[in-house]
Each structure stands twice: as C-alpha cells, then as structure tokens.
Design a protein around this nucleic acid. Structure first.
Lengths: 349, 349
DNA sequence: CGTCGTCGGGAAAGCGCTTTCCAGCTGATG
DNA sequence: CATCAGCTGGAAAGCGCTTTCCCGACGACG
C-alpha cells in the first residue's frame, strides 16, 4: 500500500546499544534454548526498551519458520452465523498465542481460493474454512490441491460444514437436524410443506433440504408435494422465497427455511403481507442464531453450537496429530418455539 | 506453533526450472517496473504453475518493505456492533488489496496494547482501533506512544469512537445522539429517567450518558433525579441494570441503555418480570444494531451507520495524507419505535 | 599440573525475496 | 564503420532475524 521507510529500531541497533552481538541480543529477548548471563540480559532488555524495539515479525518468520497466524475464510463477518464461528476460532487461536486473519468471500468460489492462496503465501500455521463448500467439481479439485500443498508444507487446516474434502472437518448434523425438524412438524400435523433453500451448489443447503425431504418422505408424504423455493442463502433470499410463496398462493402449512437469516427475511415479508405465524403458516429456521429466541413469535429452529464448532475447527487445524482427515460431528438439536404450531386452518380438499 | 519444514517451492526453484536468474523470475512474476521478454516470461510463469509456486509473503515483506495488511482491534467479533464495523473495515481493506487481522480484547486494556504491539511487529500498513477508548491516563499514554511509533515508521492508523488520541478518528455523535434521544423522551412527557451505563472508564459510555444528562438538565429536570445504573457494557450488564431497577422499585418511566445489547438484556429481564414495555416503562438503546428493528416491541434507539464508519476508519488509516489527525464525524439519528411511548401510568405524587 | 567438560559469548550462514548495478546485445546515428 | 543509446538478463547486496558452529575461559578432576 505504501512505502515504508524502515525507521524502526532493529535488533542490530539493540545489540550495538547494549554492546553485545546479534546472537546474544536475540537470545536475551526471546529466551531461546540458550541462557544469557543475567547482567548482559538486563542490559539488552533495557536497551530494547529504550529504543522502543519491536521485533520484525516477517524477519522472524523468515528466519525461524514459524508464524503463529491462522487464516479464516468465511462468507460475511456481519452474518451472526459466521461471527459466532469466528469468535470460536479467534478464541481458540488466542489460546495458542496465534492471531487470526479474516478473509470474507461473499460466497464467491474464486475469492475463497484466492484467500487460501494468500494464507499459504503468509505461511499461516492453520487455515480454517467456515461456511459450506460448493458443489462444483473444479472448485473442489482446486481447493483440494491448495489444501494439500498447504498441509504438505506443514500447515494445518480444517473446514466447518461439509466440503467433501479429505481434511479435518467439523460437521454439524445438518441432515439429521433437518430430518428431526421435519418429523416434529409432521407430528404436529403438518402435511404440506414449503422449503426455502439457498443455491443448491452449497453443500449445506443440499444436506439440509435432503434430510428434510427424506424424513418427510419416510412419513409417507409424497416428496413431490413439497414446494421448493430456490433463492439466495440470505435474508434477501428469504424475502424472495416468501414472496414466491404468496404469489403462488401456496397451501403449505409449514415453511422450512434452511437458515435463520432466510427465515428472518421470510418472516418480515409474511408479517407485512398480514400472514399470521404460526396460525396461517408455521415457519422454522436453522442454526439458532442468538436473535431467533428474541423475535415475536420466537422462531423455531435447529440449534448448533457455532462458537464451539469454531473452536473445534481451530483445534483440528492446529493439532499436528490431525494429519489424517479427522472429523468431529456436532449434534443439531430441534428447538420448537412459537413460530411453529399444529396447522389450524381448515383446508379445502 | 509448529515447525515448518519448508517443503514449498521457492523462487529459486522456479528460476532454475525455467533456466533464468532469480531477478528475472521475480520480475516476470511480479510485473515490476521492468519488462521481461514474452518468451522467458511465459516459461517462468509456466514453471511457477508446474511447481505450485506460492511466493513467501514474509520474504516479500522483508525484502520489499510492504505488507498489505491491516490490524483491527475490537472487543468481541460476535457483538453485532463490532461485526458491523469489522465488515466495513474488511470491505475497505479488500479494495486496497489488503487483508485484515483481527484481535479481540474483551475490553482489556492490556490486550489492546498487546495487539497493537503485535500489529506493529507485523509491520501492518494500518491499525484500526474499534470500540471506544479507556479513560485511563496510563493506557492513553502507552497507546499514544505505540501509535506514534507506528506512524513514525510509516504506518497509518485510525480509531472509531472517542479515544482522545491525536490520530485520525471516526467519531459518532454520541453526545448529540444521546441528547436528541433525551429531548425526544422529554417531549413525549417523560420526567423520571434511569440510565443503564457501562463502566464509566469507557469514553463512549461517558459521552452518551453525559449528552443524555445535559439535555435532560437543559429541559429543567434535576439531574440528580436521574437514576444511574452502573453495569457492564454487555447484555449481561443490561440484565443487571434491569434487576437493579426492579429491586429498587424505581419510578422511572423511561430507561435509556447506552447500547443496544444492554437494552436487549434489560428487555429480557423486564419481560420476564411482567413489566410492560412501553406501557410500564419506555426503553431505548443506542447503535441501531440490525435486530432492534425486529424485536417486539421494536426498540427505539439511535442509529449509527456502523459499516460506513468501519469503512471510513479504514480509509483514514490507509490514507497517507492523513498524517495530521483528521476527524470524521458521523451523525447519530434518533429512531423512535414501539419501545418508547408517552408515560401512561398515573403516578403517585 | 595438564586435560577435559561446560558454559557464555560471537561470527556467520542462511531464510526467500526485491532491487540496484552492471554487462552484453541490438539497432540507430554521424 | 565506429559510437552510443536503449534494452533485457544476471550477479549480488541486502531486508532483520534465528541458529549453528566455533572459541575462549573457567572449574573439576585424575
């Protein structure tokens, strides 16, 4: 960005000021394997303070081969889903004394790959991919290569959510969670469903929809009767889905949104259209982002412990014992609140 | 964290594979000031791809003196206030081709200083401090020194919210916003106020409370009658404040929480205690974090364009012309929603 | 009293890259 | 035809640090 005239005191300056060699100064300040005489040590530390010495992390990384940096790739940091995960990752990294660099992709495969390359260039100790993977053969192959090279160079990595990559992964029970939700809705008496899903190129979306449909089918309800509303994986997408639902005068009694933010958008539109939730239609989301509990009606959803997942991903990525692709599953627990209820409308035949 | 056996292809490998010198390889891959013959260039790029060459960012930084990195210090990334600011900073940085490294302090002055030092060590191009500063002489002096050294070394920096430091700053109109809110409440008929504030060592808190009290006083209401509830600057703090309010059987008709997350906590407790909002007591927050609009009742607050503020801070921090301490003010706009209304309860004399 | 082991210190070799400076070549010019 | 720009490629000097290897000094020991 800008030219940086060094201006900073270097270790050589400190060594000179203290009247010792570079080696001694380095040892005194980093407390390496070797010990430095207490008197010299004192003098060096004092000189460093006097000169406002700050080691150059790049030089250290270059010379020492270590960085204490982890790269985190996610879609959008202001999305509560990702910021919860990020919190976990950052907390986990802090315990390792590492810093987290964040790349936000806004769901672009290219940007995702680019960030991973950048993190490789930074020689990040670990790379964590949050957010689901794309179901795209080229993307998967490219990402596979990148991560493979990264690991071969000694770096760790982990993904949150299904990526279908042979790397350590934190896997929420998307399928099961969605299936449980479906069963709960069927049990409550629902027979006609609508599903608002994001772009089906996202693995997470496919799994959640898949789990939901399978369970519905298992309950003896023809899957073809389920209305699929394909819209972006965002609040705006949720809005669009609700609009489509209204436009086609859907007779669905329950709407499953594959993510809470989509549910948020849908609820907004439904409320504006005067559709009562849950009386006219039940609505459920997925993730149990903090605010779902607080809305009126409180939104039914499927809970995931996002922060713990982030932390776990960080552990997996930094654990050298994870050379093999280990996998940690996280349970998804259905939380029924006020936005879902048995269908009450008398339906036409 | 771990030892990194290099394993990666280096520029030297690429040069050798292409049968050229280091210099040429570097020039071909970075498109520097000098041109490389198209045939050689092609050969080099091809070799780089074949070897999966990724430049070592640390070596580049060390040799070139440039990093394209910005350090962001904030309290908690999962707090919507900060994640909105972070989004702005990250977006701004992306436009400069820079990456953002995030340090979360959880409101610890020591950690804040430590992160700034770390970012200096990384030779970050810019350092952005989000979240308000602490009103602590030692902290201020230390931070002043750090930032001064950083800038003297050619780095940029900026702060969001009042820090009382001679560096570029993005200043929300905390005082005015709180004062406007106070006036609006007085106009609505309120006379007895309670203010839930975070620790008064935070500048932001002081300004918001100060602005509120000044305006109240200017309306002829004795400031001593305003109940000050001093609790942490968090949802938990908001809860505690509400509890205190209930415990002391306060007769306040309006509760001003200095931040939305505090209001969130307070509303939760009030609802649980059967206190009706706004009928029994009006509640207002500050920041207009996305979800405030969605709660029932929708929460009155003071809007700040957080993302724009983050973006602006990034610009200030990266603009070399900002050597002098420039300041950009952001307006704070009162947004009255359903959580505030004229007091209706007949009050005892 | 000579020798060996140990310990604190220094010299120097890189880590991987950018960039200056220099050399060789081409083509234009007097 | 000799000379001089004008280019393109290479050699090498760092950037600031860690770490290996070496060396001198000192106490212990035979």
């Amino acid at each position: 960005m800008r030219i940086r005239p060094s201006g900073q005191a270097t270790l050589a300056d400190v060594a000179r000021a203290a009247g010792v060699s570079l080696a001694t100064a380095s040892r005194a300040l980093n407390g390496g394997a070797r010990v430095v005489g207490p008197d010299l040590r004192e003098r060096i530390v004092e000189a460093a303070r006097r000169l406002h010495y700050v080691p150059n992390a790049h030089a250290q990384a270059l010379a020492g081969g270590t960085t204490a940096t982890v790269g985190l790739v996610l879609h959008d940091i202001s999305d509560p889903y990702f910021s919860a995960i990020a919190r976990g990752v950052i907390a986990g990294a802090a315990e390792h004394g590492a810093l987290v660099t964040v790349g936000t992709t806004f769901r672009s495969m290219e940007r995702e790959l680019e960030f991973v390359r950048t993190f490789r260039a930074q020689r990040a100790d670990a790379i964590v991919l949050a957010g689901s993977g794309f179901e795209d053969a080229d993307y998967r192959a490219a990402m596979h290569d990148e991560l493979d090279l990264h690991r071969r160079a000694g770096g760790g990595c982990a993904v949150v959510s299904e990526h279908d990559l042979p790397v350590p992964a934190v896997l929420p029970d998307n399928r099961e969670g969605a299936a449980d939700l479906a069963r709960a809705l069927v049990e409550a008496g629902h027979r006609r469903f609508a599903v608002a899903g994001g772009p089906s190129c996202l693995t997470t979306v496919r799994h959640r929809i898949g789990g939901f449909l399978d369970a519905v089918a298992a309950c003896g309800i023809p899957v073809d009767d389920v209305e699929l509303l394909d819209h972006p994986f965002s609040e705006e997408g949720g809005r669009a889905a609700a609009h489509e639902l209204l436009d086609r005068r859907s007779r669905a009694t329950a709407l499953f949104c594959v993510s809470d933010v989509m549910a948020l958008g849908a609820l907004d539109v439904l409320a504006a259209a005067g559709v009562a939730v849950p009386d006219d239609v039940s609505v459920a989301g997925f993730n149990d982002v903090p605010l779902m509990r607080r809305l009126v009606p409180a939104v039914s959803t499927v809970r995931l412990d996002l922060e713990a997942m982030g932390r776990c991903a960080m552990e997996l990525a930094s654990d050298p014992a994870t050379a093999d692709a280990r996998t940690v599953r996280f349970p998804a627990e259905v939380v029924l609140r006020d936005s879902t209820a048995p269908p009450v409308r008398q339906e036409a035949p």
